[in-house]
Amino acid sequence: MTSLVTADGLTRVFDDRVAVRDVSLTVNAGEIVCLLGPNGAGKTTTMRMLAGLILPTSGRISINQIEVTEVTAGRARSSVGLLTEAPGLWERLSVRNNLLTYARLHGVADADRSVDQALRHVDLLDRAGDVAGKLSKGLKQRTALARALLHQPPVLLLDEPTSGLDPASARHVRDLIVDLRSEGRAILVSTHNLGEAQQLADRIGVLKTQLLAFDTPRALRQARAGARVVIDLEGSNIPIEKPIDSLSDIPGIVAAIVGDGKRIVRVTPTERSLEDVYLDLVGDER
């Protein structure tokens, strides 16, 4: 699989504050990686470094095979579509004029055609003439997503793409992200929404200044918090819960209980939720 985003040992220090420490991750073509973490965990700083907006204090970044340095950052940015947390549209201009400006900034050959394509992608072609300031939050976010797609970037960095959207708009944006994955793009999504991460992600990174875990959602649930088996017994309201490393542990546990002369009603292997895993990793900060 081709890795389009490679971060190796990224550290970023602002004055004397370490925002991100020693983060290494990859995002492959046709893959969605979700970056989870509490506020101030360094998600936006990581996104900005990967987008070529700011340089790491130490560490190495490669975007679409371009090693990002002060000299190559502009070229690397051409390979990236960044969706910022706030849509950041020019509210007095129409949707079309917003996008045309960005298409020209990216040096897209046929700006009008690429704007039409991007708007069609997010199902907004019929709203091209609308003034951006009059759009709903969901439509603004879709416009911003169209802006990120104008120059056909192989890498998409999406910072809180569904933040503040109503459920229908959020679902529409999530469906779009899944469509974009099927086009072979490498997509990194920063989110607070664990359900969204579980739904979208091929792999999840949990970030709190440093990367605490980076794996598939299933592997995270199994490896980090450990799977369990819940066994209901006849004549008892209190089930037995036992930690297991894998499903193959269950017959032994069942045999031991039966050997004690107890009658088993139901055996339920369970995984802990992503939320449990996440809170275990970052700590419950209530």
């Binding site: 900005r48 987008a51 070529g52 907006l53 502009g74 070229r75 940015r77 051409s78 990236v80 960044l82 910022t84 706030a86 849509p87 950041g88 549209l89 020019w90 509210e91 960005y102 900034l105 990216h106 040096g107 911003a144 802006r147």
Partner: peptide
């Protein structure tokens, strides 16, 4: 005010 600087700087503009 439009919070447009970040997307703007994400383009190749110097």
């Amino acid at each position: 005010q439009a919070r447009a600087l970040e997307p703007l700087l994400a383009t190749p503009i110097s």
